[in-house]
Design a protein around this nucleic acid. Sequence first.
DNA 1: TTGTATGCGTTATCAC
DNA 2: GTGATAACGCATACAA
Lengths: 346, 346
Amino acid sequence: MMKKYTIKDIAQLAGVSKGTVDRVIHNRGNVAKDVEQKVRALLTEINYQPNLIARNLKNNKVFTIGVLIPDPSLDPYWAVCMDGINSALAEFSAFDVRINTFLYDPTDTADFLDHNEALLQSEPDVILMVPLFYKEATSVLQHYQSLNIKVGTFNNQITSSTASFIGQDLYQSGRIAAKLLHSISSTGDMAIIHIDEKYKNAVHMQEKEKGFKSYYDDLKGFDNTILTCKVKYVETEDKLRDFLNDHPQLEGIFVTNSKAFHVARLLESENKTQIKLVGYDLLSDNVNYLNNGTIDFLIHQNPRQQAYLGLKYLIEHLVFDKQIPEKFLLPIDIINSENVTPFLRP
Amino acid sequence: MMKKYTIKDIAQLAGVSKGTVDRVIHNRGNVAKDVEQKVRALLTEINYQPNLIARNLKNNKVFTIGVLIPDPSLDPYWAVCMDGINSALAEFSAFDVRINTFLYDPTDTADFLDHNEALLQSEPDVILMVPLFYKEATSVLQHYQSLNIKVGTFNNQITSSTASFIGQDLYQSGRIAAKLLHSISSTGDMAIIHIDEKYKNAVHMQEKEKGFKSYYDDLKGFDNTILTCKVKYVETEDKLRDFLNDHPQLEGIFVTNSKAFHVARLLESENKTQIKLVGYDLLSDNVNYLNNGTIDFLIHQNPRQQAYLGLKYLIEHLVFDKQIPEKFLLPIDIINSENVTPFLRP
DNA sequence: TTGTATGCGTTATCAC
DNA sequence: GTGATAACGCATACAA
C-alpha cells in the first residue's frame, strides 16, 4: 500500500510550486516545456490520484437533479424507486445535491410531456428519468441532448438515444422464466400471458417473450406448445378464464409483467393452482401469492437498485466528473417464498 | 431540499465565533451557559449535519486495517473476497486507508493462530477476519476485545463474541434449497450430503440441514424420506457411489457446501443425472455443471459482497466514526444456468 | 512563466 | 470564556 501523494509533494519533488503542478495537471498552459515534462514524468511515475473530495470541497456548487418518474400512487411498482433515490442522496450528503421530483401518470403520454416541460423549466443540471413512452421519450431526450443536459434513464431503454441506461436484460429474463418453468414442469404446454398495463410496454413484453421462446427452441426434444395470450387490462378476468378453459392441458404460465397476481387470483377461484406460475416484481399482491404457493417464482427487476444506481452515476458525474456508464444491466434475481423476505426491506 | 448549514452559518446566526460553536458541538466546555443554550437550540432547529468529509480532511490520519482470511490458492472459494476488499478500498481512495493481508491455511488451526499472531504484531487499527475455527476464533476475538480493537467478521459467525458479523441466514438457505428441490421434484426421497471440507464447518452444515428439514416438516402430506450422508473429503467418490447405489429411489440431493461438483461428476459417470442437485457457490466447477444441467440450482453466498460490506463498515467507522452494525444478513441469491452470468463478473 | 494568497468546512491551537 | 488563525488537499485569481 503506497503513500498518498499530494500536489504539494509533487511540487517539492519537482522543485516547483503547487501552482505550476496544478497548471500541468489541468493543461492550462503557461508552463516551460522542460518543467512540464519533469512534472508529467513525476505524475505518471508515482501515479498521482487527485483527492476528488478535497477538489469538490473547493468547487462548492449546488447541483440540481431533475427526476421524472411515474407516480407511485398510480402504480405501486414505482414506490421503491424513491427509496433508492434517497439512498443515493444520503450517500452523498456531504455534497450539496438537490432533487426536483416530477411524477407523471404512467398511462398518459400528455402528462409525461407536461411534467417534462415543468422539469425543463426547473433548469436541472442533470436528469434522471423513466422514459415509459418510446416516441415521446425519443424527442424529449433528443432535446436534452441538444441542450447538452445529461440524462440517465432506467427501466426502459430508449435505443434511439445515447442517454445512459440502467436496467435488466429483458430477453435473458424471459429465458430465466422459461428455465424455471421447465425445471418445475418439464412436460406440458406453456402459456405466455401479456397483461396490458394500459400504457404500452410493448418492447418489454416482446423481448421477454422472445427470450422465453428461445429457451425452449434451444431444447432438444421439447415439442409441446407455447401459447401466447394478450389481455387488455379491463377485460383481464373474463378473457383469462376463457383462455384457461380453452387450454385444459396447460401446465405453466409466464406473465410478462407485474400483474401475475391477477392470474393467481383466477387460478385459485378456478381451482387450477396446480398450474405453475412465474411472474415479475415483488408487489405485495404478488408476494402474498408467492407465499401461499400459487405463484412459484417471481423475477425481481430491482427497481430500487435501478433508481439508486442511476442517480449515483449522475451524482458522481457532477461532483467527481466521472463518466456515466452508457449501459448497465443488473443481475436478475430469482425469488421464491423462502428467499423473498430480505429483498423486501428498504 | 434544504440549504446546507455550516458551522460558519451557525456562528453568524448565534452572533458568536466558529470556535464557540465547535466547543458546543464537541462538548469541550468553556462556554457560557446562555451562549451554549442558544447555540444548541440553533443546532437542533436547523438540524445541523457536519460535513464528515471536511472533518476527515483535517483529521488526516493513516488507518491500517488487518485482514485475516483463508488463502484462495488453497480453496478457490475465497478468491473473490479480495475483489470485494479492493472495491471497498477504491471507494474510499480519498482517505488514507491501508490493509495488511494475512492468508491462512483453511485446514490448519495452528496456521490460523500463527497468522493471527503476525496480524497482531502489525498493530492494526481494526481487523477484518474470516473466523473459520470456532474455538480458536473465540479466544482470538476475546483478546482483541480486551485490547479494544474492533473486529469485523464474515462468513462465520462466532456467537460467543460481540464482533460484528456479515453473512447469510444459513438456516434459511437450507429452507431455500428444500423449496427448490421440492419445486422441481415433489415426490421422491431426498438426501442431504455433507462433504467434509477438511476443516470443520460443522455449524454451517447443521444449520443448513435444520433449515432443509424444517421446510419438509412444515409440508403437509409429505412423507418421503430425507436421508443424511456425511462424507469425508478423501473418500468422497467411493462412499458417494455406494450411497447412490443403496438408495436407487433418490430423486434429489442437497449438498451443504461448495463441493456439489463432486456429486455432479459422479452422477454423470453413473448415468444418474436425472437426480436433481442443489448446492452452494459459484465456483467454476459448479458453474460448469450448472450450465450442462447436472446441477439444477446453486445458492450464492456472495462472498465478494460479504467481504466488501465488512470492510466498508470498518472504514466508515474509522473515517466517519460511524457505528458498525452488529449483524447484517445478506439476501440469498438463487442461481440457475440462465441468470448466473452477471453474478460472475468482478 | 511562475509563485503566492485565499477559501472551501472542520478542528485545534493560540492569544486575549 | 471567547475569538481569531492555521492547517488539511485542491483550485484559482492575482502578483511578481
